[in-house]
């Protein structure tokens, strides 16, 4: 599927449709396997990526996802950046609350994804788009 891809370099996937969200999941899975994450950790990070990529599509009006492997000298990991130039998020605390939604979903996308990964960083402001970076380390 994605064999032959140089996993040492960041991989970019545009997010403009439903099918792209599926592609993001597959890309994240491939890189997570390369970063030697356990099966459960792979599942967690792919699920988180699925939630955030859907947010990028639905709320951000599309954008891009960049996936790369990271190494802190002791452990390997996977780092994913979700970027869109959509309307941004006005009240971040509210958006990170379980059950809060403006899109008719379950309101678990942001808050749930944050629980599934080790590091979660979000930069956003009204009109400025949203950039979310997540990292998951191998155990």
């Amino acid at each position: 599927m994605t064999s032959g891809v140089d996993l040492g370099r960041p991989q970019t996937q545009a997010v403009g449709s439903d099918e792209d969200v599926v592609r993001v999941r597959q890309l994240v899975r491939t890189v997570a396997v390369a970063a030697k994450l356990s099966l459960v950790d792979q599942t967690k990070v792919v699920t988180a990526a699925s939630e955030l990529a859907r947010n990028t599509l639905v709320y951000g009006g599309g954008g891009s996802v960049e996936v790369s492997t990271v190494d802190n000298g002791r452990k390997q990991g996977i780092k994913i950046l979700f970027a869109d130039s959509g309307p941004g998020i006005a009240d971040l605390n509210l958006a990170l609350t379980d059950g809060y939604t403006t899109g008719g979903g379950l309101g678990l996308g942001l808050s749930g994804a944050r629980r599934l990964v080790d590091e979660f960083d979000i930069q956003t402001a009204p009109g400025q788009g949203t950039r979310i970076t997540i990292t998951k380390w191998s155990r």
Partner: peptide, 14 residues
């Protein structure tokens, strides 16, 4: 449902 999926769903809060 696979174990890894179930564990992830619990963590996700679903």
């Amino acid at each position: 449902m696979r174990p890894a999926v179930a564990i992830t769903l619990v963590e996700l809060g679903l």
